[in-house]
Design a binder for these strands. Structure first.
Lengths: 226, 226
DNA sequence: CGGTCTATTGACGAGCATCAACGATGGTGG
DNA sequence: CCACCATCGTTGATGCTCGTCAATAGACCG
């Protein structure tokens, strides 16, 4: 299969970019949105694309990220079921959205933003809330990136993922180490080493594949959370 | 004078907190807002305060920041004339806002957020735009915090401040080194050293007080901007 | 069974933090 | 008007955290 190598080193099927998705048959574009499915690694939209749509995750995981000109990557957020992403100022997207794993989303046209809010106040409130909580998360993440140690970053990340993915202390990470690293401002080696050290310290347990996490000492992790 | 030492080590007059400002005479609270003035170092609102107001800067500089429990601080943004800050989800503020220098703001009640947008669509658009551009800035800043070197952080910061403060290559920084450090995820020593090195390299010039900056080589700075 | 991708681990070094000292500045009170 | 003191910025010495480079092993797939 023909593939494209992105700046982050991952290869995605060349034929499966946004164009392919856009060419899918359209349904009504009201507040119920249009269903779309993306495969693991697929691009949902890219930095610079016309921001004519925003999205709500139905299932799966999406990452939104920015790149520096030399390929360094920062993942500003992972979006799980129920999350809204792709809302932006101006006419084009300022970051890239990709499917971390197979993902199902609802796409909403954003041509008439305020009129949509006007026509459906409840949906408008939901959007407003989405934006504000996104801003909230961004602020918290800035504290993490600017002021926390590697250990604290990982602890915060694991607790956050646990809270969003499951009620239990056992869950499966949908993303690989490179994604975690680029989200936390670390390298994959530091992520791996820190997780290993946490296993040694009895804070967590780690399954063979490295994706399944068990929070063994929530209290200690919380203490590292800041 | 009785002072209070904050976690970041700065001392502010104890008697001049939010209460003092609130007790000022009220004017009408419509879209024109209520004028308030804060002195250098004064707190405009604190993390945990009821978020019944948001603000627009008329003149001066405001910083919004978060603290970790051991006092480490992250300044997520500086707000200059025209900027809106304090918009938040939920009933209370999730960060602290303080005057970096003497500042004049307009305070807006946010009780009925959507109804306000409903009644005055233009003001609503302005708010929406403020939120979205704030989100935009936050995303850019996460790239800076997570993936840029000290030199790149400073270069980006100086170019940004220049663009917002002046049209020219000469401007005066309204904040001290500690604020810059806590904004960029560095220490004051590293900020100082990096600026000194930039002077040696001919990228900038620095006045005696350290507050006046001249961009001597915009091109080179831009190259460091990512 | 090769080839690729992912995760882990080790050795080493660089970038930045920490600790400390010092000069310059500005406000305050005698 | 000047001595005093707190604040702010700079500079130096040292060390640690985390990044870089490299090798290896397991998982997955055609």
């Amino acid at each position: 299969m023909q593939t494209v190598t992105t700046a982050s080193g991952t290869r995605i099927p060349a034929a499966l970019a946004l164009k392919g998705a856009v060419s899918q048959p359209r349904r009504a574009v009201g507040p119920q949105g249009q269903r779309r499915v993306f495969a693991r690694g697929e691009e949902i939209f890219a930095e610079g694309d016309a921001a004519d749509c925003f999205f709500k995750v139905v299932s799966g995981t999406v990452r939104t990220c920015k790149l520096l000109n030399d390929g360094r990557r920062q993942i500003d957020a992972f979006h799980l079921a129920g999350d809204i992403f792709g809302l932006e100022s101006g006419g084009e997207h300022h970051f890239t959205a990709e499917a971390v794993e197979e993902v199902e989303v609802l796409a909403f046209r954003r041509g008439q933003f305020t009129s949509l809010v006007h026509d459906d106040p409840e949906f408008g409130d939901q959007l407003m809330e989405a934006m504000l909580s996104s801003l909230d998360r961004a602020h918290d993440h800035m504290v993490l990136l600017g002021r926390k140690t590697a250990q604290e970053k990982i602890a915060t990340f694991l607790l956050d993922m646990a809270a969003r993915l499951a009620r239990t202390d056992r869950f499966e990470l949908p993303m690989q180490r490179a994604d975690i690293a680029d989200h936390l401002g670390l390298t994959i080696e530091t992520v791996s080493r820190t997780l290993t050290q946490m296993v040694r310290d009895g804070l967590i347990k780690l399954a063979a594949t490295g994706r399944t996490i068990v929070l063994a000492d929530r209290h200690a992790l919380q203490a590292l959370n800041g």
